[in-house]
């Protein structure tokens, strides 16, 4: 479904991604972990096509298409969804209106019939029910005045309505308390499906207690330096990221036991 090969990207003239490779199949959940500044959020923004993220080398093939050639909205219509680390507040634009406009733009792109307001509302209510979210957020402007938790929940809700093929959750856990985290994770789990792949970008292991990934990758200095199963995340939790600086991945397993005792 997704194949990233030797991806290099610059932000403000500085190389952040330095040859990243990743392959995913439908239905898989991959977690990408790594220290601050490793390039985790850059990956999400590059895949979504944000301005200012300049790809200098490599390719990204998504369902047979060269993703990097597409405009941001074309990527969205192809089924790429980015749950933003900092969802943008858009005063004056009603959440329902916004989401319907987005959904219909995507349906139109795929040659499906656009939904009228009645049909859309039915769909929305259904999704709210599945996610156990109240409908008060429908009447508000997009993210305006939302708490951190509400913003993240709104992202998950949008994902439920737009039903993407590939969802990238960019630090969806940051700034959430444990209850909000659980709610968000529950939503994500409900949206797991055999034909939907998800990339979960996170700094901490604790989100992965609730969203169990198929694979865990460690991103450091612009490259994936380690790949493993869910157990890798636990090791990272024990040992932190400091070992990356003193010797890299090779040292992880051998010295893990001794390092675990040190602060």
């Amino acid at each position: 479904m997704l194949k990233i090969t030797n991806l290099h990207a610059n932000v403000a003239g500085k190389e952040i991604l330095k040859g990243l490779n990743l392959e995913m199949q439908g239905g898989e959940i991959h977690a990408i972990m790594g220290p601050n500044g490793a390039g985790k959020s850059t990956l999400g923004n590059v895949l979504a096509g944000r301005e200012g993220y300049e790809v200098t080398q490599g390719e990204v093939i998504f369902n047979g298409k060269n993703l990097l050639e597409l405009e941001p909205e074309e990527r969205a219509c192809e089924g790429v969804f980015l749950a933003f680390q900092y969802p943008v507040e858009i005063p004056g634009v009603n959440n329902t209106y916004f989401l319907r406009a987005a959904l219909n733009a995507q349906r139109k792109y795929r040659g499906e019939e656009e939904l009228d307001s009645v049909g859309f509302l039915r769909l929305v209510r259904e999704k709210l029910k599945v996610l156990h979210i109240g409908d008060e957020l429908l009447h508000r402007a997009v993210n305006e005045g939302f708490s951190g938790g509400e913003k993240k929940r709104n992202e998950i809700f949008q994902m439920a309505v737009l039903e993407p093929m590939l969802a990238i959750l960019d630090e969806t856990d940051s700034g959430l308390d444990i209850d909000a985290l659980k709610t968000v994770a529950e939503g994500v789990n409900r949206l797991r499906s055999p034909d939907r792949a998800m990339i979960v970008i996170t700094h901490y292991q604790r989100l992965l207690d609730f969203i169990v990934p198929d694979k865990v990758h460690v991103l450091a200095d612009g490259r994936l330096v380690a790949t493993g199963g869910a157990e890798l995340a636990l090791k990272l939790e024990e040992q932190g990221y400091a070992w990356l600086e003193d010797g890299g991945i090779g040292t992880l397993d051998e010295t893990g036991a001794t390092q675990a005792g040190t602060p």
Binding site: A48, E73, C77, F81, I90, A101, A105, Q158
Partner: peptide, 18 residues
């Protein structure tokens, strides 16, 4: 606000609609 324009585009709306 370019952030807002991108947010809308990332949800599938084209530049003009956004």
């Amino acid at each position: 606000d370019e952030q807002a324009v991108f947010y809308l585009r990332s949800r599938g709306l084209n530049q003009e609609q956004a």
